[in-house]
């Protein structure tokens, strides 16, 4: 565990909590893509099945349980409790265009052709693109609430910090996981445009809105 990995995890946790609190406090999930949140719930579910097969550390187990529980709570708030505020008309990304290719790729390119390993690989690939419905929704409506941009910032920062963690681990531990690294690079690149808008607009006190 190095500082980049730890701050990455905490950044991820911050993103998840920010989103939950935003929905809970405003009693509304307006502007949030339920499809992205469904995909993240699927990501955590398929990745953390190893909770049943191996124990790594109390930290590892607790964080996995927290991520899974929070992602299911978020999906519950969007599709059940605050369903009336869910902006389904703007959440029109076709998720099958992500899930099907990603599913196929995880069968073809993985570390080991075993059910758990294929599901882990599926979750790594799916996570890298799971934010697309949310970004698509923002590009359709042309704007995002500031709190939503904070959520996206921490969610993007988390994988960027993991990239530094992997560079660190390569040099100091000789560890290198090509699948995680390539997917992590793709994931981080998808946020670059957003990072630019976040720094040039939101951090200067302006609302994130896109030119028509």
């Amino acid at each position: 565990m190095n500082i980049f990995r730890l701050t990455g995890d905490l950044s991820h946790l911050a993103a998840i909590i920010i989103l939950l609190l935003k929905i809970w406090k405003t009693r509304s999930c307006a502007g949030i893509s339920g499809k992205s949140q469904l995909l993240f719930a699927l990501v955590f579910t398929t990745r953390y099945l190893d909770l049943f097969t191996s124990f790594i550390s109390l930290y590892n187990t607790s964080m996995k349980l927290i991520y899974v529980a929070c992602s299911y709570a978020t999906v519950y708030l969007i599709y059940m409790k605050f369903k009336a505020t869910y902006d389904g008309n703007h959440d029109t990304f076709r998720v099958e265009f992500l899930v099907v290719p990603v599913g196929g790729l995880s069968f073809l390119v993985n570390h080991d052709f075993s059910p758990l390993e294929i599901l882990w690989t599926f979750s790594i690939y799916l996570e890298s693109v799971a934010i697309l419905p949310q970004l698509f929704m923002i590009s359709k409506t042309g704007e995002a609430e500031t709190i939503t941009t904070h959520y996206l910032f921490f969610l993007g920062l988390y994988r960027a910090l993991y990239l530094i963690n992997w560079i660190w681990r390569y040099y100091f531990e000789g560890f290198f996981d090509l699948i995680a690294v390539v997917a992590g690079v793709v994931q981080t690149i998808l946020y670059c445009d957003f990072f630019y808008l976040y720094v040039t607009k939101v951090l200067k006190g302006k609302k994130l809105s896109l030119p028509a």
């Binding site: 790594i56 590892n60 991520y67 570390h111 080991d112």
Partner: peptide, 10 residues
């Protein structure tokens, strides 16, 4: 197994 994924990471 050098090829196996590291399940310590989240």
């Amino acid at each position: 197994d050098p090829g196996a994924a590291d399940h310590d990471e989240l």
